[in-house]
Design a binder for these strands. Structure first.
Lengths: 127, 127
DNA sequence: ACAACTGTACTACCAGAATAACACAGTTCT
DNA sequence: AGAACTGTGTTATTCTGGTAGTACAGTTGT
């Protein structure tokens, strides 16, 4: 069963996209195994205190991308080939880091300064 | 006059927030000088192909934060003390990097791997 | 068979983001 | 004074995200 304990809801981005990203990150990192069970729409929505429709939207879009399998009445499961995982990992890291680097450069931070800060934050948040 | 040539409109976040962030980043980096002139609402909205009301919202909120001065009929200017700039720089870098580090850790990237990628992207986007 | 789950679908409603089209008043420059 | 800008305010409309509630059909376990 996929664990959503580490899920942090942030502002400025739709919740259904955050749920999708959380699952994709787990797949890319390998913390979510192929064929692992997904919480039901109702259970996850209650845990995250969001509307069932919001979770349903995330699951439906993931299914359209071929990362989730659902059958009416039965539980839902993730499914991802090795190739899909690798593609996700590349895509997610690249996208996020590229945007971040653009912002850091605009803020006048050098690569060295950025790396130093990141190193500190890596240690800081290791609790 | 503040240059918006480097402005990149992305999805998932309101445009007025992106405009605000762009100006804040410039202030934090020092690429925007104190007292520098802002493009008029109409001119900037035309350049970004968005609605004048969207730009107005960004400018109005920035004025409420004390970073912009506007007088009816006259041009608008940015204003920021040394303290405000420093606070912005800390706030913007911290916030962005903290979220990024959380995601990278969740993706299973070590600090070293993240730094290596960032170094590469820094070189890559230096055109 | 029955109860308790599951996914799926639908309608209605509300808030915010963004667009569109104005109107009005103050400033600046010639 | 007049033209051309400027900021400001208003109203209406559209779209999306999210909530709320309900209904129905398939699956599972007892």
């Amino acid at each position: 069963m996929i664990d959503f304990a580490g899920f942090v809801q942030t502002e400025g981005q739709p919740i259904y996209l955050q749920i999708m990203r959380y699952i994709k990150q787990g797949l890319a990192a390998g913390t979510i195994a192929d064929g692992e069970e997904l919480s039901s729409r109702r259970a996850l929505s209650a845990f995250l205190t969001v509307n069932p429709n919001t979770v349903q939207k995330a699951y439906r879009l993931l299914e359209e991308e071929g990362l989730v399998q659902s059958h009416a009445g039965a539980k839902s499961f993730v499914c991802a080939t090795r190739e899909q995982r690798d593609a996700l990992r590349r895509e997610l890291t690249e996208n996020e880091l590229r945007g971040m680097v653009r912002d850091m450069k605009r803020m006048g931070l050098t690569a060295a300064e950025a790396m130093s800060l990141i190193g500190k934050l890596y240690e800081e948040e290791s609790e």
